[in-house]
């Protein structure tokens, strides 16, 4: 390689970098380091989330937007462990922490310490209530309400519903369930006749539903929290009962099952959940805060809905064993920030 070629390469690199800096405030954040503090990696949603974060981070580092973006996951999904992890990140000298919290409140002490040490903390999905942190929240209650609204539009006659909840004692579970119950109050032709905890996992949900089914009258609909719809469907089938209208949660196995049912007997339903790509949104929001952008503390991210019309496209783009996803870009983040202002 000749020197002139080298120079040419360097010049074009500089141009690319210059172009990038114009739109992303690169000059200010190229020496900043961002860490992802994640509490759990044991399901398809979290795996997809980690992968999206890593892809986004790798690209951002390669483009010189930030100096480093590392992902850390605690091994036992415990708030005390994650608090220690956050304190370690302060010691490691990170400039910002992107946080998916094990508890909305139990990390407040550690988050406050990070803020006091001058770090930017952006929480998403599992958000924290500490006022110094940014929150990218999903309106989980609205998600619960929307499920019942959809059922009401499909089943105007109403009937008995089975509720599958998530992990007991977790904020998200509580919020979605509240939304569902608010929806049922509004559409009083429905009645929740049974409620089980499926822990957002198909196998747990299947066992729980199979256990409660014999004691239930006819069920017309199942309201879920995601990751539990396929297990519920299997339990209904095994019990020899008619498959009710099950609201799904964007998992690949659920979508696959839905497509099969649709081809077989024209089954129609709705699938909704938040996209694991929200981690990439949180990354860009943290970058914008570091760049000195004025970002409101509370941001909302829309949930990802899959309908009968978009089923095939969603199924095609979702790898087996994973969950339907959207990767957010810097522009998406700027749009979300502008909306919140």
């Amino acid at each position: 390689m000749t020197i002139s070629k080298l120079l040419l390469g360097a010049a074009s690199l500089a141009m690319i970098a210059g172009a990038a800096s114009a739109e992303s405030h690169m000059a200010e954040t190229s020496d900043k380091r961002i860490a992802l503090s994640n509490n759990y990696a044991g399901n398809s949603w979290r795996q997809a989330m980690l992968q999206t974060f890593e892809e986004t981070a790798e690209e951002a580092v390669a483009n010189g937007v930030v100096a480093a973006a590392d992902a850390y996951t605690t091994s036992e999904n415990q708030a005390t462990e994650q608090a220690a992890q956050i304190q370690n990140m302060i010691l490691q000298g990170y400039d910002a922490i992107v946080l998916n919290a094990a508890s909305p409140t139990a990390l407040n002490g550690a988050v406050k310490e990070a803020c006091d040490a001058g770090l930017t903390v952006v929480s998403f999905d599992g958000i924290v209530t500490e006022p110094c942190a940014w929150r990218i929240a999903v309106d989980f209650a609205a998600m619960g309400r929307e499920e019942v609204d959809y059922l009401a539009s499909r089943l105007p006659e109403g009937g008995n519903l089975l509720e599958i909840r998530g992990l007991a004692g977790v904020f998200v579970d509580d919020e979605i369930s509240k939304g569902i119950h608010a929806g049922v109050e509004e559409h009083d032709q429905f009645e929740i006749v049974g409620s089980v905890h499926g822990d957002w996992a198909q196998d747990v949900a299947q066992k729980a539903v199979a256990g409660i089914l014999p004691s239930l009258p006819e069920v017309v609909g199942v309201v879920t929290q995601g990751g539990d719809g396929y297990g519920a469907a299997q339990a209904f089938e095994a019990a020899g009962r008619d498959t009710p209208l099950i609201v799904l949660g964007n998992r690949q196995d659920e979508l696959q099952w839905w497509a099969e049912q649709r081809d077989e007997n024209g089954y129609e339903t709705l699938s909704l959940s938040i996209a694991p790509g929200v981690a990439s949104l949180a990354f860009w929001v943290a970058q914008q805060v570091l760049a000195g952008e004025d970002v409101p503390k509370d941001l909302t991210v829309p949930f990802l809905k899959i309908t009968q019309d978009t089923l095939d496209a969603a199924l095609e783009s979702t790898p087996e064993g994973s969950v339907a996803n959207v990767v957010y870009t810097l522009e998406d983040a700027q749009e979300v920030i502008a909306e919140a202002k």
Binding site: Q78, T80, A83, S103, T105, A106, N108, G109, K112, G169
Partner: peptide, 17 residues
Amino acid sequence: ALVGLTTSADANIALRY
């Protein structure tokens, strides 16, 4: 002591203890 550090609690906060 734990609540003094974390400022709040949840029912699973110390299971690994």
